[in-house]
């Protein structure tokens, strides 16, 4: 099946500055694709090219089989967009706003159903100017959904949200998956990408530096884990069995072991500690987080 979004060799230059320096992307139907990167990495430039708001310098772009640079009304009937910065229409209630936008589409969704989908039932008669930041963002999502699009762009949908508003927004985005929509999400929050995305691409300095599932991105599944614990007083790290001493990393009170085979080394440690009747009560095993991988990827890029 043809991918929903297909990008080959996309470039965008502003004078001598190359905001997007040749990227390839593919998004399949029904997946939530997260486009992750620090501010200024080229995320929004790329999304705006895909949304048809910006010209490109070079490359091939196909969104729902159409080049967005030349897309018309029929294409816009199939695409929804939550833009990075757009206010509510201040004079209209949530319902009126959705009535206005639903009139733009040939086959819009039901208004009440859409209001319920984003959890704004109790605010349906509230004017845009009186909504909180999180509620405005949910109205944005409702406006992007009202035309019943196949593909939805969400450009940093939860920036500036408090934790509970982010959770609510995530529920809404997960609801889009249930509806069978394809979602192109940009974010600079690792936990958001990890929570929502089927696949992640990381952009830094205008290039894709890694692509994969949240579990395997940047070789995360094969990266070393760390075992850490504090030894009781009077016991030194040099008393550890030889096979563990070779794994020691870092200094300080807390002992840290770095290993690619954590299961075996936890067993060795446990055997040793139990044999000496030591209680390692703060023992912790930590896999690299997506944030570790991400920082590793984006910092190594000039």
């Amino acid at each position: 099946m043809e991918p929903v979004v297909s990008v080959r060799g996309l470039r965008k230059s502003y004078g001598p500055f190359e905001a997007v320096a040749g990227i390839d992307l593919e998004v399949e139907r029904g997946e939530i694709f997260a486009f992750l990167g620090p501010n200024g990495a080229g995320k929004t430039t790329t999304v705006e090219i895909l949304e048809g708001f910006r010209d490109r310098t070079a490359g091939e772009v196909s969104v729902l089989g159409v080049d967005p640079a030349h897309a018309g009304s029929s294409w816009r009937n199939r695409v929804g967009a939550v833009l990075q910065e757009s206010s509510a229409e201040p004079g209209f209630t949530v319902r009126e706003c959705l009535q206005l936008y639903s009139g733009y589409y040939l086959e819009p969704r039901d208004i009440d159903e859409t209001i319920a989908l984003v959890g704004l039932e109790e605010k349906a008669e509230t004017k845009g100017a009186q909504l909180s930041g999180g509620q405005r963002r949910r109205l944005d999502v409702a406006l992007a959904l009202i035309g019943d699009p196949e593909l939805i762009f969400l450009d940093e949908p939860t920036t500036g949200f408090d934790p509970s508003a982010r959770r609510t927004a995530w529920h809404v985005i997960e609801g889009l998956r249930q509806l069978g929509k394809t979602v192109f999400l940009t974010t600079h929050y690792m936990d958001e990408a990890e929570h929502l995305a089927d696949r992640i691409a990381v952009i830094a300095g205008g290039r894709i530096v890694a692509e994969g599932t949240p579990g395997s991105l940047g070789g995360r599944n094969t990266m070393a884990a760390t075992i850490s614990f504090t030894l009781p007083e009077g016991v030194g790290a040099d008393e550890l069995p030889e096979e563990l001493r070779g794994l020691l990393s870092g200094a300080g009170e807390r002992v840290t072991l770095t290993t690619h085979t954590p299961l075996i080394h936890v067993r060795d440690l446990a055997d040793w500690a139990i044999g000496r009747e030591l209680d390692l009560s703060d023992l912790a095993l930590r896999r690299p987080t997506l944030e570790d991988v991400y920082l590793n990827l984006t910092e190594s890029t000039p």
């Binding site: 708001f53 009304s73 816009r76 695409v79 757009s86 206010s87 944005d140």
Partner: peptide, 14 residues
């Protein structure tokens, strides 16, 4: 400036 026009242009309305 509030992005309202841009959002309207993201819809099929000419």
């Amino acid at each position: 400036e509030e992005g309202i026009l841009k959002r309207r242009r993201a819809t099929p309305v000419p």
